[in-house]
Design a protein around this nucleic acid. Sequence first.
DNA 1: GGCTCGTCAAACGT
DNA 2: CACGTTTGACGAGC
Length: 660
Amino acid sequence: MNPPSSIDKTRVLDVKPLRCLSPVFTSPSDMSSVSTPQPSPFVCVSPTGPFPTGVSSFFPFVAPNETTQQQIPSRVLPGRCVGADRLAVNETTSQQTPTGVRPGRSVGADGVDVNDVQDSSTGRKKKKLNKPMEVVDVEPLLNQLIASFKLVDLDQVKKADGDKEVVRRILLVFDLFRRRMTQIDESRNGSGSGTRPDLIASNLMRKKEVRTNQTKRIGNVSGIEVGDIFFFRMELCLVGLHSPSMSGIDYISSKLTIDQEPLAVSIVSAGGYDDDGGGGDGDLLVYTGQGGVQRKDGKMFDQKLEGGNLALEKSLHRGNVVRVIRGVRDVANPTGKIYIYDGLYKIRESWVEKTKLDCNVFKYKLLRVPGQPEAFKVWKTIQQWKDGVASRVGVILPDLTSGAESQPVCLVNDVDDEKGPAYFTYIPSLKYSKPFLMPRPSPGCHCVGGCQPGDSNCPCIQRNGGFLPYSSLGVLMSYKTSIHECYSACLCPPNCRNRMSQGGPRVRLEVFKTKNRGWGLRSRDPIRGGSFICEYAGEVTDVGNDSGNNYIFDATHIYESLEGIPDYNDESWKVPFPLIISAKNGGNVARFMNHSCSPNVYWKLVVRESNNEAYYHIAFFSIRHIPPMQELTYDYGIDKADHRRKQCLCGSLNCRRYFY
DNA sequence: GGCTCGTCAAACGT
DNA sequence: CACGTTTGACGAGC
């Protein structure tokens, strides 16, 4: 490890990173620079088509109830059928067992109803007093997501055998839908009602046959790479990596194999039994067979050679490979687990062991097939760095922010001998010379204990359409174009949930030297889909023709993205002025994020309002779950002027070949 | 096909 | 915070 004092940052090499942006004003003539902001209604520059002002082509996350429709009368929600189409989240349980409702579940006037939305014209509250107050009509929402991600009527081939694109879109729809249901649930019941949004989402998707890789196969599953991570068992089911919702062993039924023998296809090692994760390189796994435990009373008995145990035995004798999914505890969410696809293993031997309680259990020793990309091993290595057991090669600086961020950001180069990027000043946030003036003053909240979901009186929640935009885990749940965070006029503490982008990165990021794209950004910690990563810090500038500036974020670029969030295309453009940020002289980790045509990160507009001033910030969020050490990239968008483009080296299948 | 059963969930409460 | 409680979905097997 190099002590920071040994590095003279002013003497590091000045190498231009491969991220040359040419900011160009494409704004209409009535737009002026930041220095003289117009207190006029927001101008929506639509990049994709002539949308009428204020009307988006797609807006999936409108709460489909009457009040919302009144607020947006021009918006018709197709396929909406009150009654038959309705999904009852709590309806069945509360009606079937009206006396057996658990505490915490809102069954009446307690809690805050979703439909309890402020009427903007009268200022009065409207409350839907119909009996099924607990019913949330979420199915149309899912239908819209399925449509917008082109998953309607998947053909039989795709259902049986998927590809990377289908897998990605299915996982995206699952997580977007699940997060939105979590948001609705929290707003009604505070910390949540106990319903399982993950189960509801997967159940509905299964009914609609929005799933893939249904054909069980031995070996890798198309569209899923070794090292991919998952946060729910249901995600494994939907993409065909491991189909049982709970059981640890997946196998092909004896009816479906040629010689009537069951064959194992995948196992989940998640700590339910006394498995041995194996020391050393992490390519060994001693797996315990299933059964032998009575779930009701915890009694133990002998395991039997049937079901998954028999399938593993048969796979051993045939020498078949088995997919291994390793479950680890999620440090960021101790009640949850992360499932890592660790690739193919071969069963080497099996035996029967006596447990402490004198019961027989089956044991299977599995060895990882060599030549596969590292997956679980990466996790082990990172843990060893953390524990100080293993030292890291190529560390140039342990923290290039010099303490400006709460999490240190390591500077690493294990590729060549370059000693670091060009000198710059680390500033953690965006600098404005002048705020944007609001046409009307915007009050701060009085949530001394932090904004709480379901508090319909909180002005910050109202500005976000009646919902807190972030979950308790800090995951983005809102689909609105812009997020309105609490700011200086608010009485809530700095750790308020609605200040997510103000605390800097929460994961341990590192700036590293890529093989062919200059410096890049990645995370040592796993990142859940929808997590805040960092903002784009720098100085707001109106200099759009500084060709020597390689560190520019330009919100006036066209951001079209098929794999992004549905309303990513149009509504993100509601910046009231052409926002261009220069991070040339000063910036944060975001200035190192490279472009990709198939990115894993996207940005949203975060508005911080204080009385009649507004500050617009660019906040980056993960599009999907990102395994540790995978490079973080976003789509730089397209410059309409079509000049100064650079050759793109992102390497994705749908690469546009250039970026700006 | 309907039914039962068992299963290395996930969230919340204590 | 490790453990129990609660509510579950899925597929195998009958």
